[in-house]
Design a protein around this nucleic acid. Structure first.
Lengths: 213, 213
DNA sequence: ATATGTGAATTGATTCACAGCG
DNA sequence: CGCTGTGAATCAATTCACATAT
């Protein structure tokens, strides 16, 4: 298990979502082919992705939905809830603070920070907004693992630096810029402007798009 | 030019952002090495990515910032403004409707749709909210190219179907689910819950992360 | 009979080394 | 002489075919 393609990790997340839907529908068994159809990949790919982590099926019979779902949750580290905090309570930050049933998704929002004195002290979505200067203390006291960056582009690197100094282990970066962090901190970008620009390219160059079958 | 890696398209977007910042700072010249540092990739990679589309530099001297920026904007199709509409005016939809200076980003939001009669008829961020039944007419009349899906997961496929029937050419999908569209329509996912789950995996398995140079 | 699991083959992307040009 | 541009080599990911287990 020396290395796993990043694309495999993304697909595991997709398979887990499909399995969660199947379980909610009361479906008990599935197959690599069915998962592949739903995830828009090949059945080979599903089996190879799972093979990086072990054997989860029964030959001739397929996969048991609750079992495979549990295994994927374990592999992805979603058995305990992670603690998260949000830096930047603008409109996007507010939208995330109000995201319904966050804990259903294995994450708990425990902190929110902003630099604007008009926002500090208020509560949104059950979370108190602290001044950014309080970040180190709150992150330590509440055991925050993950920081969300929802500040403007120009403030993103500063927010990342503050989160790293306070000891978070991962950052979800909504700002449209690349941030620099030490190698032991992982960053996942969530950049809709970049997505829009890729869309522009592929609309103009449909022949350069990868096949979806 | 039979095929271009999707990773290359993502990196072109990053290079363009860096060039835009350099131009705003009045910097006139740059190099593959400088761009590589900023984008957190190798200089080989920058030159190879650009080589898919032509020759844009001067040997021995590097790249002229405004020239390369203009070329990348042309390659990505960002010379004209694209028309976009948003389906689902919840908190996330509102956050996007208020996104400052959208037109600076080569996109113009011309329409917004919701199913809630309490929202229809109001205006947000200068855009009138129409009932979703009006989508086909408005998309045609306003020449909408791109649809944003910001509805709940269960409504995402229906929203996609409506957009496709109305003739959009691309979809930016913020809903945490895979949507099915005909192959001539391109979809870019913007899925922060998936990003969070990847983060969980990489925090637990730091040794499985790809090297960042 | 059927669908998984996996080494081998293929395809694709990145890295390299240096030729080419200013 | 310096930095780009690019074929060749390496490395990685996907696809395939089939052996394997139930």
């Amino acid at each position: 298990m020396s290395s796993v393609p990043t694309a495999t990790v993304s697909r595991l997340v997709t398979y887990l979502r499909i399995l969660t839907q199947l379980e909610a529908q009361g479906v008990k068994k599935t197959s690599s082919e069915h998962l592949a159809d739903e995830a828009q990949v090949s059945a080979f790919q599903v089996r190879k992705d799972l093979a990086y982590f072990g054997r989860f099926g029964t030959r001739g019979a397929g996969y048991t939905v609750p079992t495979l779902r549990r295994e994927l949750r374990r592999i992805l580290g979603l058995t305990r809830p992670w603690s998260a905090a949000i830096v930047g309570v603008g409109r996007l930050g507010e939208a995330i603070l109000h995201y319904p049933n966050f804990s259903d998704y294995d994450f708990v929002l425990k902190g929110a920070f902003d630099i604007d004195p008009n926002k500090v002290g208020f509560e949104l979505g059950g979370v108190k907004i602290d001044h950014i200067d309080e970040l180190p203390r709150v992150v330590r006291e509440k055991g925050i693992d993950i920081g969300f960056i929802t500040v403007p582009q120009t403030a993103a690197q500063g927010a990342a630096d503050a989160l790293v100094r306070a000891g978070v282990r991962g950052i979800l970066n909504f700002a449209p810029t690349i941030i620099d962090v030490p190698k032991e901190v992982h960053v996942e970008p969530v950049d809709f402007l970049a997505g829009l620009k890729r869309l522009s390219f592929y609309i103009l160059n449909p022949q350069l798009r990868e096949e979806l079958v």
